[in-house]
């Protein structure tokens, strides 16, 4: 196992991690501020990817597509918040789970209805195609490096937003004491819609970025959603810092596990048996990680509040 391979895999893990962070930050914000558990977050990921694919196909500009995807996801988020989510803030978690589960069905089947079941294909633009040399000799795709860069920028931006701006102050106030911000005379309804749309936009951006790498299809948000839940549970629900650390941890552990576990078992088994045992364990690895962390820290690594 060479050092370059290890480095390359670490970067792969980091790239998965930044993408998870885009998903998890929205989820955790919405939970932290409004106390809402939102299963339909993956639908915004899908909306972003679809709109990006369609816009890029019709205008030929990937950047325009990215912007349209994030905006459409934000708009979808705002509409959903106004029509449905708003009625759920004072409801039990059970009602929130069920209503947002219903939203998943509506979004997924609605998209299937409109665009059919076949995946749409979106490619990175010419100027992001190809690969660059890494220190150590390996080559790495430019596009994936770009995803990491975007993730870092968003993380920095969120940090500034929350620590330096008025909106951020209100969000922090909302996280620490939900009753208080009402007393401060802040229009909670608008704040909530804004936060929800922001989370949706980040999910839409993640979907758009990943869509160009993979494919754009109905249900694409669901595996990512589950991973994002693991991330925020590990990080501590409501904590942006926890989401960032959890995302990178999950991204790296998942990527390295997928490669090294089969290789490890391959030392004393045939390749196909090792692949069976190794991939089975690798698929479970992050859930095991989560169970272990929760066994010691039932509120996650950086608990905000329950």
């Amino acid at each position: 196992m060479s050092a370059t391979l290890l480095i390359e895999q670490l970067i792969n893990g980091l790239q998965l991690g930044t993408m998870l962070f885009l998903m998890a930050s929205g989820l955790t914000l919405v939970f932290g501020v409004m106390g809402l558990i939102n299963l339909a977050h993956g639908s915004f990921y899908m909306v972003g990817a679809y709109v990006t694919a369609l816009t890029t196909a019709s205008t030929g500009s990937f950047l325009l597509g990215l912007a349209a995807g994030s905006l459409a996801a934000a708009a979808a988020g705002a509409v959903v918040e106004l029509l449905v989510i708003r009625r759920l803030y004072h409801r039990s978690h059970l009602d929130q789970v069920l209503a947002t589960f219903a939203l998943i069905l509506i979004f997924s089947e609605g998209t299937r209805w409109l665009f059919g079941s076949s995946p749409l294909w979106l490619s990175p633009p010419e100027w992001l195609a190809g690969s660059v040399a890494l220190p150590g000799g390996a080559r790495y795709p430019v596009y994936r490096l770009m995803i990491i860069a975007v993730g870092v920028l968003i993380a920095a931006g969120l940090y500034l937003l929350i620590s330096r701006t008025r909106l951020g102050m209100r969000i922090r106030a909302g996280e620490s004491d939900r009753e208080m911000i009402g007393a401060l005379g802040i229009d909670i309804r608008r704040l909530y819609t804004l936060v929800f749309a922001l989370g949706a936009a980040l999910a839409g951006l993640a979907g758009s970025l990943v869509g160009a790498l993979q494919s754009v299809q109905v249900g694409m948000g669901e595996p990512v959603l589950i991973l994002a839940f693991v991330v925020i549970v590990i990080g501590g629900i409501g904590s942006i810092k926890g989401a960032l650390l959890g995302a990178i941890l999950v991204g790296v552990v998942d990527t390295l596990g997928r490669i090294f576990l089969p290789a490890l078992f391959g030392l004393f088994m045939s390749p196909s048996e090792a692949a069976g045992v190794g991939t089975a364990l690798a698929a479970m690895l992050i859930y095991i990680l989560m169970a272990v962390i929760l066994a010691f820290k039932p509120q996650g690594l950086f608990a905000a509040h329950d």
Binding site: L5, E8, N12, P141, R144, T255, R258, I259, S272, G276
Partner: peptide, 22 residues
């Protein structure tokens, strides 16, 4: 030289491509 097994329905092959390269 080697046999790589991926998850069914996998969408990201960065890790496998790195292994092939190496």
């Amino acid at each position: 030289v080697d046999e790589l097994y991926t998850q069914l329905g996998q969408t990201d092959y960065a890790a496998e491509i790195a292994q092939i390269r190496a």
